[in-house]
Write a protein that binds this DNA or RNA. Structure first.
Length: 476
RNA sequence: GGCCCUAUCGUCUAACGGUUAGGACACAAGGUUCUCAUCCUUGUAACCGGGGUUCGACUCCCCGUGGGGUCACCA
């Protein structure tokens, strides 16, 4: 699923949930040449990963099989060929469509000539005037053909729920193919038929579809059907303002999830790109968005994806998360790196490190120092305003203090901190000269959580070991 | 090129005729602090141009200009 598709999906979802309507997943796979193996499964899995439920459409079972729910199926267009055929016949019989035998080569040449002549490429209707008996004969002979809709003269217009009225002159519209030579309906016919049959009230889609809307309006007219409400959402842009594309970075929802963005943040971020419910609020729950969503407030101009802001938002969500829940989210990323860790310890690490995480994947580098102490320079142990001698003396005195911290104290971050601060006070010491070497001894790092937190996570025995290591290093 | 969409800080946005043009990200400077992160304070930074309409335009209209989309037996 493309990140832009996710936004459209969320808007569909918000709208449907807000109005008590049905949110439908329909698979538009009428191009056999572009079928990607397992694409459908991947798409449906993404819905599951994001926790987006829909009311009708194909559902992936845990055993990998596909089941459809809803009364208007099948919801996969490649399974609906028989549904479309009668409408093609109807359009043909009414003179709203015609059979075309032109080869792809001829069409290609025609287009090149038109382009060279600075004309807008458009089918020249060579097959429109073909006598009925000739058409019948060639059809009977099994000649390859397509069916085109005969675009009438005049103008059409529709009221876009986001942009207002948009009008087109039909002289600019091509005689669109509605039935391809392989017998599959084209997208244009399929959506019009399906939207009608499936009783679709609202169609939200990307802005790039605006220019194909007149074809669908004409089709609705020809079939005598009412149009659904169309809303064309703005494009999501690359930093250079062009349509967000795969070529300029990975844009699939799955890749964002794999990078450690959580669904809540991704949805919050993408939903408020081109849509702003309140103006000054940044973080919205899904429930809030369902309540506040308003199609008329969706922007009509494209928006660049601000990745720094996504990072910030993701960090906000991670920070707000319960450490226990965070630990569960983070675990798969550790397991992918074959790092195993007991739950209790991981929860503690999440507690002390979560404000340093931007993405879930950041846990990988955070966990290391707790598992094993990396080598470090002894000079690191000396606080900037202190001396090596003082560090030695502080650590020497600290070891027995840490060694006798009792079990009850060790279970509580607050108690550990209170105990150590009391020690500093009673011995009339300063924070810096004590806490710095303690912290470096425990982490081996110039930057890390506080010594109290490290102590809490590491436990007394490991802490004492590391203090002794530090002392050994200094006395080296 | 034709057609269509579009235009507020670098980016995402608020404003729906009257504001010192607000917020967020990013950036910068302080503060808190044993370090980092968090957190707090402050700062730099925008109405594309020109005409109208109006007592008054970021807001409405028109024309430019810029940007984008689309012109397939792809969706």
């Amino acid at each position: 699923m493309h990140i832009g598709t996710l936004r459209t999906v969320m808007y569909d979802y918000f709208l449907a949930r807000q109005h008590g309507g049905q949110f439908i997943v329909r698979i538009e796979d009428t191009d056999q040449a572009r079928l990607v193996p397992d694409a459908l499964e991947g798409l449906l899995k993404t819905f599951v990963k994001l926790g987006i439920d829909y009311d009708e459409g194909p559902v992936l079972q845990t055993d990998g099989s596909l089941v459809e729910k809803g009364a208007f199926g099948p919801y996969i267009q490649s399974k609906r060929l028989d549904v479309y055929r009668p409408y093609v016949e109807q359009l043909l019989a009414a003179g709203h469509a015609y059979v075309c035998f032109c080869s792809k080569e001829r069409l290609e040449e025609m287009r090149e000539a038109q382009t060279a002549a600075k004309m807008t490429p458009k089918y020249d209707r060579r097959c429109l005037g073909l006598p009925a008996d000739e058409v019948a004969k060639r059809l009977a002979a099994g000649e390859a053909h397509v069916v085109r809709m005969k675009i009438p003269e005049g103008t059409v217009a529709f009221d876009d729920a986001i942009r207002g009225r948009i009008a087109f002159n039909l002289s600019d519209v091509d005689d669109q193919i509605i039935l391809k030579s392989d017998g599959f309906a084209s997208y244009h016919l399929a959506v019009v038929v399906d939207d009608h049959l499936m009783q679709i009230s609202h169609v939200l889609r990307g802005e790039e579809w605006i220019s194909s809307t007149p074809k669908q309006i004409v089709l609705h007219d020809m079939l005598g059907w009412d149009m659904p409400t169309y809303a064309h959402v703005p494009l999501i842009l690359n930093p250079d303002k062009t349509k967000l594309s795969k070529r300029k970075g990975d844009v699939s929802v799955d890749s964002f999830l794999a990078k450690g963005y959580v669904p809540e943040a991704l949805i919050n971020f993408i939903s408020t790109l081109g849509f702003n419910p309140k103006g000054d609020q940044e973080i919205y729950t899904r429930e809030e968005l369902v309540k506040l969503f308003d199609l008329s407030k969706v922007h009509s101009s494209g928006a660049v994806m601000n990745m720094e802001k996504l990072d910030w938002m993701n960090a906000q969500y991670l920070r707000a998360m319960d450490p226990r829940a965070l630990a569960e989210r983070v675990r798969p990323f550790l397991e992918a790196d074959e790092v195993s860790m007991d739950s209790e310890r991981l929860i503690k690490i999440c507690t002390v490190e979560k404000e340093r995480l931007v993405r879930l994947t950041d846990i990988k580098e955070k966990v290391g120092p707790y598992i094993s102490l990396a080598p470090y320079e002894s000079s690191l142990l000396v606080w900037k305003k202190s001396t090596k001698e003082e560090a030695v003396s502080i650590l020497t005195n600290l070891i027995p203090v840490v060694s006798v911290l009792d079990e009850a104290t060790m279970t509580s971050l607050a108690l550990i901190e209170a105990e150590l601060r009391e020690y500093i006070e009673q011995n009339q010491l300063q924070n810096g000269p004590v806490l710095w070497p303690l912290r470096v001894a425990l982490s081996g790092l110039a930057a890390s959580p506080s010594p109290f937190e490290l102590l809490w996570v590491l436990g007394r025995e490991e802490a004492v070991r590391r203090l002794e290591t530090a002392l050994g290093l200094l006395q080296g």
